Computed example of a mutant assay.
Amino acid sequence: MVILAFFVFHWYFSILMQTFFLHRYASHQMFTMSKNWEKVFYTLTFIAQGSSFLSPRAYGIMHRLHHAHADTEEDPHSPSYSKGIFDMMWKTRMIYNNILHNQDSVEAKFKKGVPNWEFMEWLGDRWVIRLAWGILYTLFYIKFATAWWMFLLLPFHYLMGPIHGVIINWYAHRYGYVNFKVDDTAKNLLPLDFLMMGESYHNNHHKYGGRANFGIRWHELDFTYPLIKALNAMKIIKLKLNNDLKYM
């Protein structure tokens, strides 16, 4: 029971920070926050993603490229231009690392305004730190696991960030339904996104890229959006636009 509770906690804590901080803030700047609060959410992302920490700066830049070049050869992660899921993941990794280590040729317009706390960017990418997180996960399982099959969950902990990314970047461009005609293959993967906290409403997001609430239809509940509204009410963040659409 402890192991399953830990897995569920890690899954949702990680996807929350990815969708809230890396995606909606770093990539799309749907809201603003002070530099001090930015460092708080940097730190929470580091804790949530652990061994699979994704740089908010590199993620933000790469995701902007995805929207600008969706389902073309210049898309960092398109199933249409990949031989398979692992080929797409490897291509994404190479582009991500080039951006992370400033070895890219990305236009300056895609880098404007992305967060960049150099210390945390450096710390989160150290292999000794990633290894230390992995060891902590493993020791936790050794202490609390009550069956051998529970150890099969460990790889998910090690690679939580990329796993969340590939669910959307691969499956939500191949399976699901569409509310809107867009110039790419983005689909809504789940009619009720209990798994990805709003991220799976990918077709909606590609239609309205600056909209903080990813849900459109009455049943498309974006479980991240109430947190955004609450943080906005507490003046921790400030929503840039009030562009809610009526539910369909």
Results as ranks from 00 to 15, higher is better:
148 W>F: 15
137 Y>F: 15
224 T>I: 14
24 R>P: 00
113 G>R: 09
221 L>I: 15
59 Y>D: 01
239 L>E: 14
27 S>N: 10
16 L>T: 11
11 W>H: 15
165 G>R: 05
136 L>I: 14
220 E>H: 03
6 F>K: 02
59 Y>E: 04
75 D>P: 00
86 F>N: 10
67 H>P: 01
6 F>Y: 14
71 D>G: 02
81 Y>R: 05
43 T>F: 15
63 H>I: 04
56 P>L: 04
60 G>C: 02
72 T>R: 10
235 K>N: 11
227 L>K: 04
225 Y>L: 08
19 T>C: 02
70 A>I: 03
52 S>A: 15
104 D>F: 07
158 Y>L: 15
106 V>D: 05
200 S>G: 06
17 M>C: 07
36 N>P: 00
152 L>P: 00
225 Y>E: 11
48 A>F: 08
12 Y>E: 01
225 Y>N: 10
65 L>C: 03
238 K>M: 03
13 F>S: 15
242 N>E: 11
103 Q>R: 13
8 V>W: 08
100 L>W: 11
49 Q>A: 08
189 L>W: 03
82 S>E: 07
122 W>A: 12
108 A>W: 04
143 K>M: 10
59 Y>K: 02
61 I>Y: 02
143 K>F: 13
246 K>F: 05
11 W>N: 08
157 H>M: 11
166 V>W: 08
225 Y>T: 09
36 N>W: 10
189 L>K: 02
215 G>M: 01
46 F>T: 01
180 F>S: 14
166 V>T: 11
52 S>F: 02
191 P>R: 13
110 F>D: 04
192 L>K: 11
133 W>C: 08
40 V>S: 03
246 K>E: 12
11 W>C: 04
157 H>L: 13
51 S>M: 01
24 R>F: 06
68 A>V: 02
136 L>W: 06
203 N>T: 09
182 V>N: 09
143 K>Y: 15
40 V>M: 03
149 W>K: 09
34 S>G: 07
179 N>M: 11
190 L>N: 05
116 N>P: 00
149 W>C: 08
75 D>K: 07
52 S>E: 00
224 T>E: 14
54 L>N: 13
187 K>A: 12
31 F>T: 07
109 K>S: 13
234 M>L: 15
3 I>C: 09
5 A>N: 09
187 K>C: 09
41 F>G: 01
62 M>L: 14
29 Q>D: 07
80 S>N: 10
28 H>I: 08
100 L>I: 07
168 I>E: 01
184 D>H: 07
16 L>K: 04
84 G>E: 03
160 M>V: 15
